[in-house]
């Protein structure tokens, strides 16, 4: 077990290194240089070169990369080229926003999606066809379009909720919750369908397993067959999709954050890319990879606990 843990952690670190190396290379391949971005249009060529020299931009790549890794290990993610503020604290401030969005979005879509999937698999027939067709459509709707439509209905027409903007939890919990309703609803509508399909498929498969007949033959009631045995049998693939959902939301909530003007890391990524804020881009890639890697590790350990075949070995 210990060996397994160490091996997994080693892989996680390797993944982080590779992701940050990719980000590093991309940043260096881009036409921009730190000096060009930081000093703006008005700066002279010499000023730009001098700035670049000062941040070591012309040193060999590997040397630069490891210097950056060294800084990161000391907890220093660098400073933004645009406003000169340190990146670390900025990201730390943004993380809770994205985390709240991802956690709530995953939870709500999991509840809706799993319920839909179970109902489809168990009831079958017209209900199943209806749910499957419906989820097929939901699956295809672009999130930003759904978001805008929701804004139109709930904010513009009904005036129930704020259209955009964010209020931190510490400032006003109720306003915080209201500012998250539409983003989370948008996520739920567009992500629940995938989970519903996965749940339906896994449940359907579990229900065709030979042991279902044995259970019936010893008089097991239907609710036990469905909710204890079939759902348990289907739990591993469902859990994996929920984890993937979470990962996608954490790294990919750019559109939602931009649409609803939420100050999360997705929005930061968009503006950093738009303004070529190179150190910020690099830092964000690292943080996003870290989240994926941690979630994957957690999933793997959970699998070890939940899957008898893995647990035994």
């Amino acid at each position: 077990m210990l060996f397994f843990v160490l091996k997994r952690i080693a892989w996680a670190i390797l993944t982080l290194l590779i992701a940050s190396w990719i980000a590093f290379v991309l940043v260096h391949l881009s036409g921009s240089t730190p000096g060009g971005v930081a000093l703006g249009q008005s700066a002279t060529r010499e000023q730009v070169i001098a700035y670049n020299e000062s941040v070591g931009w012309y040193a060999p790549w590997l040397q630069q990369y490891f210097a950056w890794v060294g800084q990161v290990l000391q907890g220093n993610l660098g400073v933004s080229l645009i406003d000169g503020r340190p990146i670390g604290p900025d990201i730390a401030k943004r993380l809770p926003v994205t985390a709240a969005l991802a956690v709530l979005g995953t939870l709500v879509s999991a509840v809706i999606g799993i319920t839909m999937g179970v109902v489809a698999a168990v009831r079958g027939g017209a209900i199943d066809r209806g749910i499957t067709a419906f989820s097929g459509i939901l699956l295809s709707l672009p999130a930003f379009w759904v978001g805008v439509l929701l804004v139109y209905v709930f904010a513009v027409q009904l005036r129930l909720l704020p259209a955009t903007g964010f209020v931190p939890f510490a400032v006003d919990p109720q306003a915080w919750a209201r500012s998250l309703v539409l983003p989370v609803l948008t996520i739920a509508i567009t992500s629940a369908a995938g989970l519903a399909r996965q749940t339906r498929a896994s449940m359907g498969e579990a229900l065709t397993q030979e042991h279902m007949r044995t259970l019936r033959a010893v008089g097991t009631p239907t609710w036990r067959i469905v909710y204890i045995h079939a759902l348990r049998g289907a739990s591993l693939p469902i859990l994996a999709s929920v984890a993937i959902q979470f990962i996608i939301l954490f790294g990919g909530s750019v559109i939602i954050e931009v649409l609803f003007a939420l100050p999360g890391i997705g929005q930061a990524m968009q503006s950093a890319v738009g303004s070529a804020d190179l150190p910020f881009v690099q830092a964000l890639v690292l943080v996003a990879t870290l989240v994926v890697v941690v979630v994957n590790l957690a999933l793997e350990f959970l699998n070890r606990v939940l899957d008898p075949k893995l647990r035994a070995s």
């Binding site: 590779i18 992701a19 881009s30 990962i247 790294g251 890319v273 881009v281 990879t289």
Partner: peptide, 18 residues
């Protein structure tokens, strides 16, 4: 596994930056 652990959207955005 490694490719799967890369945060897709973020890498695409970094790619656009480049």
């Amino acid at each position: 596994e490694i490719v799967l652990s890369l945060p897709g959207t973020v890498i695409i955005l970094a790619f656009i930056a480049a």
